[in-house]
Lab assay of single mutants.
Amino acid sequence: DNLVIALHSYEPSHDGDLGFEKGEQLRILEQSGEWWKAQSLTTGQEGFIPFNFVAKAN
């Protein structure tokens, strides 16, 4: 599964970004460059996240 966990909170700064809290679990939908499309397992919302704010969940 493409599950990751947030290492830091992220406040969206552009339309289409997905905000999240530290410790939140996300599902990665697309990996492309430094911005990945993800879905929050907490809110169900989708958007782009900075890849270096998350780590693979085990």
Rank of each mutant, 00 (worst) to 15 (best):
residue 30 E to M: 08
residue 14 H to L: 08
residue 24 E to N: 04
residue 20 F to W: 00
residue 45 Q to M: 12
residue 55 A to N: 09
residue 6 A to G: 09
residue 13 S to Q: 13
residue 7 L to S: 09
residue 35 W to H: 12
residue 56 K to E: 14
residue 17 D to Y: 15
residue 35 W to P: 06
residue 43 T to I: 00
residue 46 E to I: 15
residue 38 A to T: 00
residue 15 D to R: 13
residue 37 K to S: 07
residue 10 Y to L: 05
residue 17 D to P: 02
residue 21 E to W: 05
residue 43 T to D: 06
residue 8 H to Y: 13
residue 48 F to W: 15
residue 49 I to E: 00
residue 22 K to L: 04
residue 54 V to Q: 01
residue 55 A to P: 01
residue 2 N to V: 01
residue 6 A to Y: 00
residue 5 I to L: 09
residue 16 G to R: 10
residue 37 K to P: 02
residue 19 G to H: 07
residue 44 G to A: 08
residue 18 L to W: 00
residue 11 E to V: 13
residue 15 D to N: 09
residue 46 E to K: 13
residue 18 L to G: 03
residue 27 R to A: 08
residue 53 F to T: 09
residue 14 H to N: 15
residue 8 H to S: 12
residue 7 L to G: 05
residue 14 H to W: 07
residue 3 L to P: 03
residue 47 G to S: 00
residue 47 G to A: 02
residue 52 N to T: 09
residue 9 S to A: 09
residue 31 Q to A: 15
residue 6 A to E: 01
residue 19 G to P: 10
residue 29 L to I: 07
residue 50 P to T: 01
residue 43 T to W: 00
residue 51 F to S: 15
residue 24 E to F: 00
residue 17 D to K: 15
residue 41 L to M: 09
residue 4 V to D: 12
residue 42 T to P: 03
residue 49 I to R: 02
residue 43 T to V: 01
residue 30 E to F: 06
residue 54 V to R: 02
residue 20 F to A: 05
residue 12 P to T: 05
residue 56 K to R: 12
residue 21 E to I: 05
residue 33 G to K: 05
residue 10 Y to D: 05
residue 31 Q to H: 07
residue 35 W to L: 13
residue 39 Q to D: 00
residue 5 I to S: 06
residue 19 G to E: 06
residue 36 W to T: 13
residue 55 A to I: 12
residue 39 Q to I: 07
residue 51 F to Y: 13
residue 57 A to C: 08
residue 36 W to F: 10
residue 10 Y to W: 14
residue 51 F to N: 15
residue 46 E to A: 13
residue 41 L to V: 15
residue 24 E to C: 04
residue 9 S to R: 11
residue 13 S to N: 13
residue 37 K to R: 13
residue 54 V to E: 03
residue 23 G to R: 00
residue 46 E to H: 06
residue 26 L to P: 01
residue 51 F to A: 15
residue 14 H to Q: 12
residue 32 S to R: 14
residue 20 F to K: 03
residue 52 N to W: 08
residue 34 E to L: 09
residue 28 I to N: 04
residue 22 K to Q: 07
residue 24 E to L: 00
residue 21 E to R: 13
residue 33 G to T: 09
residue 33 G to L: 02
residue 21 E to H: 14
residue 1 D to Y: 09
residue 16 G to P: 00
residue 49 I to D: 02
residue 56 K to H: 14
residue 46 E to Q: 13
residue 17 D to G: 13
residue 18 L to V: 06
residue 27 R to L: 13
residue 48 F to L: 14
residue 19 G to D: 03
residue 52 N to Q: 14
residue 46 E to R: 09
residue 37 K to I: 11
residue 2 N to Q: 10
residue 48 F to N: 11
residue 12 P to V: 03
residue 39 Q to K: 13
residue 26 L to N: 02
residue 46 E to M: 13
residue 1 D to V: 05
residue 55 A to H: 08
residue 25 Q to L: 14
residue 36 W to A: 15
residue 1 D to F: 06
residue 25 Q to C: 12
residue 18 L to Y: 03
residue 53 F to E: 05
residue 44 G to P: 00
residue 6 A to Q: 01
residue 15 D to E: 14
residue 57 A to E: 15
residue 34 E to G: 11
residue 57 A to I: 14
residue 23 G to A: 03
residue 46 E to C: 14
residue 4 V to R: 08
residue 14 H to T: 10
residue 49 I to V: 12
residue 27 R to V: 13
residue 26 L to Y: 00
residue 1 D to A: 07
residue 2 N to Y: 08
residue 18 L to T: 03
residue 54 V to N: 01
residue 20 F to S: 00
residue 9 S to E: 09
residue 28 I to F: 00
residue 49 I to N: 02
residue 20 F to I: 05
residue 25 Q to H: 11
residue 56 K to N: 15
residue 26 L to K: 01
residue 33 G to F: 01
residue 3 L to N: 10
residue 4 V to T: 07
residue 32 S to I: 09
residue 11 E to L: 10
residue 17 D to Q: 15
residue 45 Q to S: 08
residue 23 G to L: 01
residue 43 T to Q: 05
residue 13 S to I: 09
residue 40 S to W: 00
residue 9 S to G: 11
residue 57 A to K: 10
residue 3 L to W: 09
residue 29 L to N: 00
residue 25 Q to R: 14
residue 5 I to R: 08
residue 28 I to M: 03
residue 18 L to E: 02
residue 48 F to S: 07
residue 39 Q to Y: 05
residue 55 A to Q: 15
residue 30 E to P: 02
residue 13 S to V: 12
residue 44 G to W: 05
residue 7 L to A: 08
residue 25 Q to V: 14
residue 15 D to M: 09
residue 45 Q to A: 12
residue 48 F to Y: 14
residue 22 K to R: 08
residue 28 I to G: 02
residue 54 V to K: 00
residue 20 F to G: 00
residue 33 G to W: 00
residue 4 V to H: 12
residue 16 G to N: 13
residue 38 A to C: 06
residue 41 L to S: 05
residue 54 V to A: 03
residue 55 A to S: 14
residue 56 K to M: 11
residue 50 P to R: 03
residue 42 T to Y: 11
residue 5 I to V: 15
residue 6 A to H: 02
residue 51 F to Q: 14
residue 32 S to C: 14
residue 10 Y to E: 00
residue 30 E to N: 13
residue 26 L to T: 02
residue 18 L to N: 03
residue 50 P to N: 03
residue 53 F to M: 11
residue 10 Y to K: 11
residue 46 E to L: 10
residue 18 L to C: 01
residue 35 W to Q: 15
residue 12 P to E: 02
residue 51 F to R: 15
residue 21 E to L: 11
residue 43 T to G: 03
residue 52 N to D: 14
residue 18 L to Q: 01
residue 52 N to V: 03
residue 15 D to V: 08
residue 23 G to Q: 01
residue 43 T to M: 02
residue 24 E to W: 03
residue 54 V to C: 07
residue 18 L to R: 01
residue 6 A to I: 02
residue 41 L to F: 05
residue 12 P to L: 01
residue 2 N to M: 12
residue 26 L to I: 04
residue 1 D to P: 02
residue 26 L to D: 05
residue 13 S to A: 10
residue 1 D to E: 13
residue 5 I to M: 08
residue 17 D to L: 11
residue 45 Q to G: 07
residue 30 E to S: 11
residue 40 S to C: 06
residue 22 K to E: 12
residue 12 P to N: 04
residue 30 E to R: 08
residue 32 S to W: 06
residue 37 K to L: 11
residue 54 V to T: 06
residue 1 D to K: 04
residue 58 N to I: 15
residue 24 E to V: 01
residue 54 V to F: 04
residue 28 I to L: 12
residue 2 N to F: 15
residue 53 F to C: 10
residue 15 D to L: 12
residue 45 Q to D: 09
residue 44 G to D: 08
residue 20 F to Y: 02
residue 14 H to E: 13
residue 7 L to W: 03
residue 22 K to C: 07
residue 54 V to G: 04
residue 12 P to K: 05
residue 43 T to F: 00
residue 29 L to Y: 09
residue 40 S to F: 01
residue 37 K to C: 04
residue 5 I to W: 12
residue 37 K to N: 05
residue 42 T to S: 13
residue 3 L to E: 04
residue 41 L to Q: 10
residue 11 E to A: 11
residue 9 S to N: 15
residue 33 G to Y: 00
residue 47 G to L: 02
residue 50 P to I: 01
residue 16 G to T: 11
residue 52 N to L: 04
residue 42 T to A: 13
residue 26 L to F: 08
residue 2 N to H: 15
residue 36 W to Q: 06
residue 57 A to M: 10
residue 52 N to I: 01
residue 15 D to H: 12
residue 18 L to H: 03
residue 11 E to H: 10
residue 34 E to I: 11
residue 56 K to C: 11
residue 26 L to H: 03
residue 51 F to I: 15
residue 45 Q to W: 04
residue 48 F to P: 05
residue 11 E to K: 15
residue 43 T to N: 08
residue 29 L to T: 08
residue 16 G to I: 07
residue 20 F to D: 01
residue 11 E to Y: 07
residue 8 H to Q: 12
residue 2 N to L: 10
residue 25 Q to D: 07
residue 52 N to F: 04
residue 42 T to E: 14
residue 52 N to Y: 07
residue 13 S to H: 10
residue 12 P to C: 06
residue 3 L to C: 08
residue 52 N to A: 09
residue 18 L to S: 01
residue 41 L to E: 11
residue 28 I to Q: 00
residue 16 G to Y: 09
residue 52 N to S: 10
residue 25 Q to P: 08
residue 20 F to N: 03
residue 17 D to M: 14
residue 23 G to P: 00
residue 25 Q to E: 14
residue 6 A to L: 01
residue 29 L to M: 07
residue 35 W to R: 15
residue 21 E to N: 08
residue 38 A to I: 02
residue 56 K to I: 09
residue 6 A to P: 01
residue 39 Q to V: 14
residue 10 Y to N: 04
residue 31 Q to R: 15
residue 29 L to A: 04
residue 13 S to K: 15
residue 29 L to F: 05
residue 49 I to S: 00
residue 22 K to P: 02
residue 22 K to W: 00
residue 45 Q to L: 11
residue 31 Q to S: 14
residue 42 T to F: 07
residue 41 L to R: 05
residue 17 D to C: 14
residue 12 P to I: 05
residue 26 L to A: 00
residue 25 Q to Y: 13
residue 5 I to F: 12
residue 50 P to G: 01
residue 26 L to E: 04
residue 28 I to K: 01
residue 7 L to Q: 11
residue 40 S to Y: 01
residue 5 I to H: 07
residue 37 K to E: 06
residue 34 E to A: 13
